[in-house]
Computed example of a mutant assay.
Amino acid sequence: MKIRQVIGVLCILTAIVLIGAPFLKYELLEAKSSHVTAQSLTPEKIEQNNKKPAEFDMESIEPPSVMDTVVKEAKADEESVVGQIRIPSVNLDLPILKGTTNENLMAGATTMRENQWMGVGNYPLAGHHMNREDLLFSPVLKVKKGDLIYVTDLTYEYTYSVTKTEVVHENRTDLIENTIEPNITLVTCYNSDDRTKRFIVTGELKETHEYKK
């Protein structure tokens, strides 16, 4: 009888965990992206981080699981933070981390090339599209032409105006290549059920000024 009771309790606990798993994942991801911001660092630290080598392994990127959010580092790595991105029109405010890795993508937006600089050429950033519309890069799907995107390295703040949004196939790697014109390119999955599609936001640089908290 006792064994049956134990098994019954375990079954109930397992069911509770399975039901609550998605909510747990979203809460943990939200904590990761809000724990560390660029503003908690110094301009000197940001510059130092930007000079460090990083990984850009697009092939190994996977949607974060509940286990990932629990086992992986529970906050953005300060050694990877190189800036902050804000899009007020969709309430997006995330740290920018150098290197496209599963760990970095669970904490914010990530750079997509080794040598990319705010305000110079094309500045591509990637982020996860989750099933919760306010988490990580999910708000990017609501960005419209004319919206303003702000990125900062704590020395300068760069203002970009959105010129285009489009859905493309994942093989359009040309969109993250460098350009002569100062642009920004935001990349995220378009549909969680079809991982071959990407939602792209393109913006052109409108203004650069000294950063002030």
Rank of each mutant, 00 (worst) to 15 (best):
K2P: 00
I3G: 02
I3S: 08
Q5P: 03
I7K: 05
G8S: 15
G8H: 09
L10Q: 05
C11P: 02
I12P: 02
L13G: 02
T14D: 10
I16Q: 12
L18A: 15
I19N: 05
G20W: 04
A21G: 12
F23Y: 14
F23L: 14
K25I: 02
Y26D: 06
L28M: 12
L29H: 04
E30A: 11
A31H: 04
K32C: 10
T37L: 09
Q39L: 07
Q39W: 08
L41H: 02
T42D: 01
K45Q: 13
K52C: 10
A54Y: 05
E55V: 12
D57R: 11
M58K: 12
V66N: 09
M67L: 15
D68K: 03
V70W: 06
K75S: 11
A76R: 06
S80N: 10
I87L: 10
I87Y: 01
P88Y: 06
S89H: 06
V90A: 05
N91T: 01
D93M: 04
D93W: 00
L94P: 03
L94G: 08
I96A: 11
L97I: 08
K98S: 08
G99N: 11
T100A: 09
T100G: 06
N102P: 14
L105R: 00
A107I: 02
A109L: 12
T110P: 00
T110Y: 03
T111K: 00
M112L: 13
M118S: 04
G121T: 04
N122Y: 15
N122A: 10
P124K: 13
P124W: 03
P124Y: 06
A126E: 05
H128N: 15
H128M: 12
H129N: 14
N131A: 11
E133C: 01
L135A: 07
L136W: 09
F137N: 00
S138W: 09
P139L: 01
L141P: 02
L141G: 05
G146L: 07
D147T: 13
L148F: 05
V151A: 02
V151Y: 00
T152E: 01
D153R: 15
L154D: 10
E157Y: 01
Y160F: 10
K164M: 10
V168F: 13
H169E: 11
H169F: 10
E170F: 02
N171I: 09
R172H: 13
L175Y: 10
N178H: 13
T179N: 06
I180A: 00
E181V: 07
N183K: 15
T185G: 03
L186A: 04
C189F: 15
S192E: 09
D194T: 03
K197Q: 13
K197D: 02
V201L: 00
V201N: 05
T202I: 13
G203E: 01
G203P: 04
L205F: 08
E207T: 06
E210V: 14
Y211G: 07
K212W: 04
K213A: 03
